[in-house]
C-alpha cells in the first residue's frame, strides 16, 4: 500500500514491531500503546526513531508523557466513515503541541484527503487499489475552507482577500 506525503509516493522507513519482538536500538519502529507504556526507559535510550500506533478509541492524552520521545503517531480509520481519529489528531496537534509525523492508516480513501490534511495529518497509507492521481485530484478539489484555525493547503476567507468583490 502506497505511502503518500505532500502529494508524492515516498518510501516507508518505518516498520511496525511485532508484538513479541525485542525493541531494537536502531531503526524506525512503530510500537503499540502498551509497548510504549511498558518500555519507556528503553525507548528514551534508542538511537533510532520511535513511533506509536493507537486505536481510535484510545485517549490521546495517554501519549502526553511520551511525546518527547515520539517522532510518529499513527492513527487508525477502521472504516473511512469512523471519524474519531480526526479529533484525536486535532487534540494531539492543538492540546499537546505534537509536531512530529501524524500518519493515517486503515481505510484511508482519496476522498478524505482534504479533511485529513487540515486536521494535521502528514502521511497517508492509501487503502487498496487507489491511485496517486486520484488522491491528488481529490486533495486539490477544494482550495477554499470556511473553518478558521485549521492547517492544510486550503485558504480561509481572510487568506484570499485578492478574490474579486461580490458581483
Amino acid at each position: 500500500m502506497p505511502l503518500i506525503r505532500d502529494g508524492e509516493i515516498i518510501a516507508d522507513t518505518w516498520r511496525v514491531l511485532d508484538e513479541g519482538a525485542e525493541i531494537p536500538g536502531q531503526g524506525d519502529v512503530i510500537l503499540s500503546l502498551e509497548r510504549l507504556r511498558n518500555g519507556a526507559g528503553q525507548i528514551a535510550a534508542r538511537a533510532g526513531r520511535t513511533g506509536v500506533a493507537i486505536e481510535n478509541s484510545a485517549d490521546p492524552g495517554e501519549l502526553e508523557a511520551h511525546l518527547a520521545h515520539l517522532d510518529l503517531i499513527a492513527l487508525d480509520f477502521p472504516a473511512f466513515t469512523d471519524g474519531r481519529a480526526y479529533s484525536q489528531a486535532r487534540r494531539l496537534r492543538v492540546h499537546f503541541g505534537f509536531a512530529g509525523e501524524l500518519r493515517a492508516r486503515g481505510s484511508v480513501l482519496a476522498d478524505q484527503a482534504g479533511f485529513l490534511t487540515r486536521v494535521g495529518f502528514d502521511t497517508f497509507e492509501l487503502a487498496g487499489g487507489q491511485s496517486l492521481k486520484v488522491w491528488n485530484a481529490s486533495a486539490r478539489s477544494m482550495t477554499l475552507a470556511y473553518q478558521r484555525g485549521y492547517d492544510g493547503g486550503q485558504a480561509t476567507r481572510e487568506a484570499v482577500t485578492e478574490l474579486p468583490a461580490p458581483a
Partner: peptide, 13 residues
Amino acid sequence: RQWSSLHPEFSFL
C-alpha cells in the same frame, strides 16, 4: 452554515 460546511474534523460523526 459556513463553519459546518465540509468541516475537516466533523464530517464523519
